[in-house]
Design a protein around this nucleic acid. Structure first.
Length: 489
RNA sequence: GGUGGGUUCGUAUAACGGCUAGUACUCAAGAUUUUCAUUCUUGCAAUAGGAGUUCGAUUCUCCUACCCACUACCA
């Protein structure tokens, strides 16, 4: 959800400003590769209607070769690995970065000894002088280590004590002193890949990115990114850090486990993890994509008016980063349902009937399309989701096989059954029946609920006249007689 | 621990120094209905605390509290 919202805001901003929305896959961590994840992202965006202007080829896959539509291909960073090394080395030559030869074990040892004395180990100006890197070793040593070993890195040489003055479109001005920052790894010899920080800056520059709109969790690395742009001598893009999506109860960032625990999806589409764990998706739960997009848009942004329902096109027109809030937004599953309900009501009866048909089929019902459409017209106001239709109106498709005990005890009484039977037998339409009951001065509620019990198996649901209009008088009588056989007075 | 960010009804938010702090979701009550749902009406409910600036502070400044993020050869 959080990722989709970030993509959505990027899309809305780009479209609003007449720009392009570019899809790039940042897969520089070879250890975290997840099969199917890239396809999942693309399919999710497509379902939401957030279509990239650039990044996908004609078949809808990530573009691998450059053409008029995709001038910056490839868009998968793992396929761009040849690009980054020279930029990393350019920084070393300029004195902005250096080679580091510390092993993971050595660094781990530094961390634990620091921790033992109540300190925190930071790889920066204060410590780099006593560690194994191209700043402390002789150039002969460095050269031979560069040749012999395959586990070295290139680290950014964070200035010792410098104020970085930054501007964020959403958060305004922020100052950070570099003394609190560390020498981030920019490039890893082990897998010949950059880390996020380097790859992101290089590619944003190469792809002519004007605006970086991302989650708030990136705010702490903004100074590094500022410094990187300065070190390269590149013009930097504008930045906007979005508020986080928080879990509905308690504190903290929305995580995939929350949904499983609290009964709502956190993924746009159902996702099966490599370990077989299945996470439910908004699509599979019956949400309309435009409802999902709408509810996501309202989490952290508002139009400044009281309008709540927006099509994607309307969102594009109304969107502005100035109206994005600063504080984290707790996700409210109840409101999410409300959005879907609003969209369900806006859907045509034809479309809803089409969506209902396969559900009917699952229940072994083959019904006439026009009949289903009329049912939908009657019940759409009572549902949040298409899947609710069956629970609301199943008895318009088949007779009840059992009766709610409590309701039967209340309404299936000799006098009621006698009145109901007579009313049913002596009239030929629901309207006539109602008139008959009235003219006999019988208690409408008791008689009607007695009939409803026979027709539907319980004492609540649709109006009797509506039910009879659909199932017909013959079927109504048949159900009534069956109830007489089955129920004990 | 350090650094940064944040804080208006339960939730999402409005009010960019000036109305009785508005709206939506949820919840409750009433009306309507043969029941349920819908619909309509009404209601409950908030500026974290403390200083300061000001004629006037939800809004600006500072302090405190709390929450969040980051603090990896992850993104």
């Amino acid at each position: 959800m959080g990722g989709v919202r970030t993509a959505l805001y990027n899309y809305l901003f780009a479209k609003k400003m007449g720009g392009d929305f570019i899809l790039r896959i940042e897969d520089t961590d070879s250890h975290r590769f997840v099969p199917g994840a890239e396809e999942y992202i693309i399919e999710s965006l497509r379902w939401c209607g957030i279509l990239p202007d650039e990044g996908l080829d004609a078949s809808g896959k990530l573009a691998e070769t450059a053409d008029a539509r995709n001038p910056h291909a490839p868009y998968r960073q793992s396929q761009r690995r040849g690009i980054y090394r020279k930029y990393a080395e350019q920084l070393v030559e300029g004195g902005y970065a250096y080679y580091a030869f510390d092993t993971a074990e050595e660094l781990e040892k530094e961390r634990s000894t620091a921790e033992a004395s109540g300190q925190t180990f930071i790889y920066n100006a204060a410590t780099r002088g006593s560690l194994r890197n191209s700043l402390t070793l002789s150039s002969e040593e460095v050269n031979s280590l560069l040749q012999e070993r395959t586990d070295w890195t290139i680290r950014f040489r964070m200035p010792a004590d410098e104020l970085v003055a930054m501007d964020d479109i959403i958060r305004g001005h922020i100052d950070v002193n570099t003394s609190t920052l560390d020498d981030k790894v920019l490039w890893k010899r082990a897998d010949e890949l950059p880390t996020y920080h380097l790859a992101n800056i290089v590619d944003d520059h190469l792809m002519e990115i004007s605006h970086v709109i991302r989650g708030e969790e990136w705010l702490p690395s903004l100074p590094l990114h500022y410094l990187l742009y300065a070190a390269f001598g590149w013009e930097r893009p504008e930045f906007a850090h979005l508020p986080l999506l928080l879990k509905p109860v308690g504190n903290g960032k929305l995580s995939k486990r929350d949904g499983d625990k609290m009964g709502f999806p956190v993924f746009p589409l159902q996702w099966t993890a490599p370990d077989g764990q299945v996470s439910r998706g908004y699509r599979e739960d019956g949400y309309f994509p435009d409802a999902f997009v709408n509810l996501l848009a309202m989490l952290g942004w508002n139009p400044g008016t009281e309008q709540e329902i927006f099509s994607l096109q309307e969102l594009v027109e109304a969107f502005s980063l100035e109206k994005v809030g600063k504080s984290g937004a707790k996700f409210n599953p109840e409101k999410a349902k409300w959005f879907n309900k609003e969209y369900l009501r806006m859907r045509s009866d034809e479309e809803l009937a089409d969506a209902f048909m396969p559900i009917l089929k699952e229940h072994g019902i083959s019904a006439d399309e026009s009949y289903v459409r009329e049912v939908v017209t009657l019940i759409k106001e009572r549902a949040n989701f298409v899947r609710d239709f069956w629970d609301i109106a199943w008895y318009l498709f088949k007779a009840p096989e059992e009766y709610v005990e409590k309701d039967a005890a209340k309404f299936w009484k000799a006098e009621n059954v006698a009145m109901a039977g007579e009313a049913l037998e002596k009239t030929d339409s629901a309207i006539a029946m109602e008139e008959y009951i009235r003219s006999m001065e019988w208690p409408m509620g008791k008689v009607m609920n007695c009939i409803r019990l026979a027709l539907t198996g319980s004492s609540n649901g649709l109006g009797i006249a509506d039910i009879m209009r659909f199932i017909g008088r013959e079927e109504a009588l048949a159900r009534f007689h069956r109830a007489e056989e089955r129920l004990i007075i």
